[in-house]
């Protein structure tokens, strides 16, 4: 198939960017979106031009590295799919595709389509962990956890931290990411002792990083490749309110 690409090119964090147009000819319909970009890049390299920089690693939808906004939709907007798992058969021959980076103040562009998502690492440092060793597989198997709690924690733990929620949000808010981590760790008995500290610490790190605020529009949920539900955000709001009340009154 033949496509016209309009790709965001930006030399570095501080340089102004622009959309550059490329003709992508003879792309196999079975290629993934990233393989399509590989083909375009090989041709650019052959011509001695600078290839398009984009992030990727596993290419099987589990690492969260790929991060493209395709026609205004993070990961192409199919829902439940990462850019690396999106295939060219989803597009039409002759179509124009606009490819931009995930846009947020907290995700500065490193180059072209690659953004710096270390703000998520700082949020994790704010409380997205369990401070003590909780054992390994035998201890996990021996810990009694109700099925519904385990299911909820597991669904939240599916978050791969790709940042599509931020990219899709009208306010560049990271609430769905934080909510997934807080729901995951605050649900299981190993994480509960640090429940309050975690909610407060992660939300403060999120605010500090310069993300926007949630307006309950759920663009994040629609864009999430792992389909983290909006209930996670309600749970985060509740955990944060509870922890704040305790902190404010008990000190």
């Amino acid at each position: 198939m033949n496509l016209t690409l309009k790709v965001w090119r930006q030399k570095n964090r501080n340089a102004p960017g622009h959309l550059a147009e490329y003709e992508a000819r003879d792309i196999p319909v079975d290629a993934s979106f990233l393989e399509m970009l590989d083909i375009v890049n090989e041709r650019l390299i052959e011509k001695g031009e600078d290839p398009i920089a984009f992030d990727h690693d596993c290419r099987e939808g589990i690492c969260g590295m790929c991060s493209l906004t395709i026609n205004g939709k993070p990961h192409g907007g199919k829902g439940g799919v990462t850019s690396c798992q999106l295939h060219m058969r989803e597009f039409e021959d002759g179509q124009t595709i606009v490819i931009e980076p995930f846009r947020a103040r907290a995700f500065p562009v490193a180059k072209d389509l690659a953004v710096d998502r270390s703000a998520f690492d700082r949020i994790i440092q704010g409380g997205g962990y369990i401070s003590v060793r909780t054992g390994s597989a035998p201890e996990a198997n021996a810990a009694p956890i109700a099925k519904d709690v385990a299911d909820r924690a597991f669904a939240a733990a599916a978050c791969i931290g790709c940042g599509a929620c931020v990219a899709a949000c009208k306010n560049a808010s990271a609430m769905l990411f934080v909510a997934a981590k807080v729901t995951h760790l605050n649900s299981v008995p190993q994480g509960r002792p640090e429940r309050d500290r975690r909610a407060l610490g992660m939300v403060r790190a999120m605010d500090e990083a310069g993300f926007g605020n949630c307006t309950n529009q759920y663009e994040c949920v629609a864009a999430c490749p792992k389909q983290i539900p909006a209930e996670a955000i309600a749970r985060l709001n509740r955990d944060f309110a509870r922890a704040s009340l305790k902190e404010t009154l008990a000190g």
């Binding site: 205004g72 846009r103 103040r105 560049a172 808010s173 926007g212 307006t215 663009e219 864009a223």
Partner: peptide
């Protein structure tokens, strides 16, 4: 704060499910 959180707007933007009222 929401406006400041995205200094560079998307050239092409899309709405996935947000309602008009929201």
């Amino acid at each position: 704060a929401n406006r400041a959180a995205r200094p560079q707007e998307y050239v092409v933007s899309a709405t996935l499910r947000a309602t008009r009222s929201s």
